[in-house]
Amino acid sequence: MTAEAVLPDWAFPPPQGFVAEDLDRIPDLPPHTELIDGSLVFAGPRQRFHHDVIFGLHRALAEAAPDRLQVCQAMAVKLTPEQRPEPDLIVLGPQAPSDETMTC
């Protein structure tokens, strides 16, 4: 006897593909899910080396950056309605929105 995996309804894209705002509305979406070309991209587990490098880069950038710049880690960036990647690090300028409730 074989068991078939049952995927949740949200795993199947709408005909036009997903849009950036869908990532905020889909219940139980795995952490660090990105949207690339209207498709969901799931992050794999990160190795300790990856974590250590990102932590070191974050500290170095934060120390070197002028006060008007802010270093953010693992924050999604909405580039277009179909593109919402989540870079490991991003440096934000003073013109960037600063609402603490923003998800991207």
Rank of each mutant, 00 (worst) to 15 (best):
F49G: 12
G56C: 05
V41K: 02
H50R: 09
Q70T: 13
G56A: 14
H50E: 14
I36M: 04
S39G: 04
I36V: 01
A62G: 05
A64S: 14
Q47W: 12
R68A: 13
H50I: 07
G38D: 02
P30T: 06
S39C: 02
H51L: 11
I36D: 03
H58E: 15
Q70N: 08
I36P: 00
P31S: 11
F55H: 09
H32S: 14
L69Q: 04
P31V: 11
G56K: 06
D37W: 00
P66K: 13
L57F: 05
A43C: 00
D67I: 06
E63W: 13
Q73Y: 06
L40V: 04
Q73R: 07
F49P: 06
H58F: 15
Q47K: 11
A64K: 15
A60L: 14
V53K: 14
A65K: 00
S39Q: 07
A62Q: 05
V41W: 12
P66Q: 15
V41Y: 06
L57G: 03
H50F: 14
A43K: 08
G38I: 01
I36Y: 05
E34W: 07
A62I: 03
P30M: 08
V71M: 13
H32C: 06
R46K: 09
P45D: 14
F42H: 02
V41E: 07
L35D: 00
L57S: 11
G38T: 00
L29Y: 01
I54L: 07
R46Y: 07
V53F: 13
D37S: 03
R68I: 07
V71P: 00
L29I: 01
V53E: 14
F55K: 09
Q70G: 04
D52T: 14
V41C: 05
F49M: 12
A64C: 12
T33Q: 05
S39F: 02
D37G: 03
C72I: 03
C72V: 08
L35F: 00
V53W: 15
H32A: 13
A65L: 11
A62D: 07
L61F: 04
V41R: 05
H32T: 04
P31N: 11
H32I: 04
P30W: 12
L69E: 02
S39I: 01
H32N: 12
